[in-house]
Each structure stands twice: as structure tokens, then as C-alpha cells.
């Protein structure tokens, strides 16, 4: 069978598209499929913001369907006035506070965009994040301490414990 688009190459992709109950069959070659990306289900021919709007208007995941409309009250950001509907439409936040305002609705979207991830593990700003950096360091040392205790390396553990105390003292003194 030849490709129905170019009539030149053999058709290698066969699929059926059903829109509003109307059935359409397609038989096309790889090259034409690439050029006519919109024919193919799931191809990225949308703009990113179309896709985002799709994600945001998605029905809530199943687990939430028991208690309908739990987020009814969060429909607008106090800080910038952006409504959730507008956010879903333009696919962009209006201000940093939007992240807090719409928090309950964002997790599924972030998961979809960022391969299942929802929390930041990268860089922390040196100045305004100095406390956070310190806190994370203390957490790391605490994990190390646990590890050492499990391995019964008590001498080393004692050293780490003292380091943690010192850091905590400095942390409390500084803030």
C-alpha cells in the first residue's frame, strides 16, 4: 500500500482516528507523518501553552474525586489578581505568590511536566537562601550520623555529633 499523502513511498504507519464518533483511517509513510505531525496522536504539534492548558483543565486525579471541589475557594491570587481560569488559559503564573495560591492544584501538573518530580534539588541562592543551605547541611550530617551509628563507628559518630551541635548553635545564634 502506498502512502495516501505522497503516493510515492510505501505506507508504514496505519492508525484510526475517531473524533465525535466519526471514524477516519490513515495510511501514511514515516516522512509524511513527520511533516504532518498533527495527524499523529500524541505528537507535539501543539504549542507548549496549549498543552499546559490541557493539563491544568484535566480532571482531578481519582483520589480526589471522593471529595468534590475541595479547592473551590482558591480561584484567584491575592497578590496579582490572576484567576485560576486565566492561569489555565495562558499557562503562566502572574507572580511568585501564585505558586502558594494555587499550590493544591499544581502537583499533578508539575509531575507531568517534570517527569514525576515535584521538589527542587538544585541550586539555592547564596544570600537569601543561606539559612536553608545551612539547614540542609545539618540534615546531611544527621543522615551521616545515623549511618555511622548503624555501622557502629561510634568514635567517628561522636565527632559528627559534635559538628552538628556546633552548626546548630551557630545557626540559632545567627538567625
Amino acid at each position: 500500500m502506498y502512502c495516501q499523502e505522497c503516493q510515492q513511498r510505501p505506507a508504514t504507519l496505519h492508525f484510526t482516528k475517531i473524533i465525535n464518533g466519526k471514524k477516519n483511517e490513515f495510511h501514511i509513510c514515516e516522512q509524511c507523518a513527520k511533516e504532518k505531525g498533527d495527524l499523529i496522536p500524541g505528537s507535539n504539534s501543539f504549542s507548549i501553552h496549549n498543552l499546559l492548558s490541557g493539563l491544568l483543565n484535566f480532571d482531578q486525579p481519582l483520589s480526589d474525586s471522593n471529595n468534590p471541589q475541595p479547592d473551590k475557594q482558591v480561584t484567584q491570587c491575592d497578590q496579582c489578581g490572576l484567576s485560576y481560569t486565566k492561569f489555565a488559559k495562558i499557562g503562566r503564573f502572574g507572580c511568585p505568590d501564585c505558586y502558594k495560591t494555587f499550590e493544591s492544584k499544581l502537583t499533578p501538573m508539575f509531575k507531568r511536566i517534570h517527569g514525576g518530580n515535584t521538589s527542587h534539588t538544585g541550586k539555592i541562592p547564596k544570600r537569601i537562601g543561606s539559612e536553608l543551605i545551612e539547614r540542609k547541611k545539618i540534615d546531611q550530617f544527621k543522615q551521616k550520623l545515623q549511618q555511622l551509628i548503624i555501622q557502629e563507628e561510634f568514635e567517628e559518630a561522636a565527632k559528627v555529633r559534635d559538628q552538628i551541635r556546633m552548626m546548630e548553635k551557630r545557626f540559632e545564634g545567627g538567625s
Binding site: 499546559l52 499557562g91 503564573f93 511536566i113 541550586k123
Partner: peptide, 19 residues
Amino acid sequence: YAFDEQHGYLTSCPTNVGT
């Protein structure tokens, strides 16, 4: 900077948030 512990650097488009 607009930054929070959970989401990292806050950006206008959700596809850029984090780093």
C-alpha cells in the same frame, strides 16, 4: 530572587520552575 524551598526558583512558566 523569588525562590522557595519546595519549588526552587519561581518562574512565570511552570516548565521552567526549579533550576
